[in-house]
């Protein structure tokens, strides 16, 4: 439709005015700090002393040869590689169980969604108690079934899995709801037609549900990836990056550098490297998961 009258111009102006508040706040609270951070990342900048020295790419080259930073990135990727498939499959599974509405599914929806509502700080503190090797609920339960104690807090080989468990428990419910919305959007007549043709349940899932859920799936996977690579709060509260740095993820490392060791420039450079990595991954995912199937 073409707008050529005075009315059209007025509408256009109104549109801009509507965009304005969001644009201003984005510019002020997102882009301006980001630009500032970008300049800081090229400086030797101590947190408590604003007089900084420009050091060019030294922070970036230092980071790329810093084994602690590389390790923290590897921990983040390890976390993401496990959490993305497990959490997505779990969320989809839960959604399939409850997406048709009846009073029972309503109840279960609420139960599965509960962890999402709990504040992450509270959940982390609770999990720290639950994981306690001697008095925690988890090991009491395992002991009841005769299984040995699991030291999620003090075994460097296990600690990251403890954080993963917490992460999946906390977020699966949210993505379940997204999947429920996606599932309910698939027209019922497709299934009816398939049934007439004698399709099995598995065939219906693979040939109808999954392809038509692809948009939802794309959204879920990209958001999960970003969240997973940026994991911070449970690490800070449950393990503090320990034992022996085994749960120090990239964001936690950045926090330690910038605020504990006061190397703001170095930390900001690390944040930008992480930002670029996350952005690249998201772009690749968007391309890969692009779909032509429509309904």
């Amino acid at each position: 439709m073409k707008m050529n009258s005075a009315f059209g111009k007025q509408e256009e102006r109104a549109a801009w005015l509507f965009v304005l508040p969001a644009a201003i706040s984005l510019a002020l609270f997102t882009f301006y700090p980001m630009l500032n951070a970008l300049t800081i990342s090229f400086k030797e900048y101590s947190l408590i002393n604003p007089e900084a020295v420009f050091v060019g790419l030294a922070n970036y080259s230092g980071l790329l040869s810093d084994p602690k930073f590389i390790n923290s990135l590897l921990h983040s990727f390890h976390f993401a590689l496990v959490v993305i498939p497990v959490q997505t499959a779990l969320a989809l599974g839960l959604a399939l169980l409850i997406y048709r509405s009846s009073w029972v599914t309503g109840l279960f929806r609420t139960i599965y969604f509960m962890p999402v509502v709990i504040a992450i700080g509270v959940a982390s503190t609770l999990f720290k108690l639950i994981y306690n090797q001697d008095y925690g609920l988890l090991n009491s339960l395992l002991g009841f079934f005769g299984a040995g104690p699991v030291s999620f807090l003090s075994d460097p080989n296990l600690a990251l899995y403890g954080i993963m468990l917490l992460g999946v428990w906390k977020s699966a419910g949210f993505f379940m709801i997204i999947f429920v919305a996606g599932l309910n959007g698939i027209p019922n007549d497709l299934y009816e037609a398939a049934e007439v043709d004698g399709a099995t349940r598995a065939q219906k899932f693979v040939k109808i549900t999954l392809p038509l859920l692809r948009r939802t799936l794309t959204f879920v996977i990209i958001i999960t990836t970003m969240d997973a690579l940026k994991i911070f709060v449970p690490v800070a509260l449950v393990t503090g990056g320990g034992p022996a740095d085994s749960t120090t993820t990239a964001v936690y490392y950045i926090y330690k550098i910038a605020f504990q060791q006061m190397e703001m420039g170095y930390g900001t450079a690390a944040a930008f490297i992480l930002f670029v990595i996350v952005m690249c991954i998201s772009i690749v995912q968007l391309r890969l998961l692009r779909t032509d199937v429509e309904y």
Binding site: P67, S154, D155, P156, G242, P243, A244, D245, S246, K256, Q260, Q261, M262
Partner: peptide, 28 residues
């Protein structure tokens, strides 16, 4: 010192909890 304190607590944790080789952990 802020770097020293983190490096030292990491060093002791490396030796205590992961049972790492002393020479390697100290070198790091």
């Amino acid at each position: 010192y802020p770097v020293i304190t983190t490096a030292i607590s990491k060093l002791f944790a490396d030796l205590g909890v992961s049972g790492r080789n002393v020479d390697e952990a100290v070198a790091e």
